[in-house]
């Protein structure tokens, strides 16, 4: 059901861990729905992401999207990191099964949450960045009527 890339990033996730005194951290998702992602960013004075780490509680796709998202933002400026959308993460992973698309949304959200934390701490405005929602699942996936 998963692509080889997803399996690779799940089995050998990149950038797992924590960063002490991180420039920004973000945690999104909730245990109720079964996935939580936390991203740590280390950002230098030129607003370049020097290092990034993540921790994820969730399914294979949740781990793989976290791993890929950290790879995509590493070494980028915060502005460039804003361009890392869920679509970009999915494409880089050669796609996700439809029921797992929300995992890639969560990865994008986690990066944004960490950037938001960084921006707030430093009094910076990042173009296009909005305060992250804590739970991206709200209102999603209504059960279809059955007869």
């Amino acid at each position: 059901m998963y692509s080889e890339k997803v399996m690779d990033h799940f089995q050998n996730p990149r950038n797992v861990g924590e960063i002490e005194n991180a420039s920004g951290t973000g945690t999104v998702g909730n245990a109720k729905c079964g996935d939580i992602m936390r991203i740590y960013l280390d950002i230098d004075e030129n607003q370049v992401i020097r290092d990034v780490k993540f921790k994820t509680f969730g399914c294979g796709a949740a781990v793989a999207t976290s791993s890929m998202a950290t790879e995509l933002v590493k070494g980028k400026s915060v502005q460039e990191a804003m361009q890392v959308t869920n679509k970009a993460v999915m494409e880089a992973l050669d796609g996700l099964p439809p029921v797992k698309v929300h995992c890639s949304l969560l990865a994008e959200e986690a990066i944004h949450a960490a950037l938001w934390d960084y921006a707030e701490k430093n009094g910076i405005h990042i173009e296009g960045l909005q305060k992250p929602k804590s739970d991206i699942h709200e209102g999603e996936e209504e059960d279809e009527e059955e007869y």
């Binding site: 799940f10 079964g34 996935d35 509680f57 969730g58 399914c59 294979g60 796709a61 797992k100 999603e140």
Partner: peptide, 30 residues
């Protein structure tokens, strides 16, 4: 505690072990 069932199943599968879970990710719902 602290871990999710589907991840566990995929890793067990990697070791040739077939099992199942009651996690959302294996039930097709949230």
């Amino acid at each position: 505690r602290f871990i999710e069932g589907e991840s566990l199943l995929i890793m067990l599968d990697g070791k040739g072990i077939c099992a199942s879970s009651g996690s959302a990710c294996t039930s097709g719902s949230l």
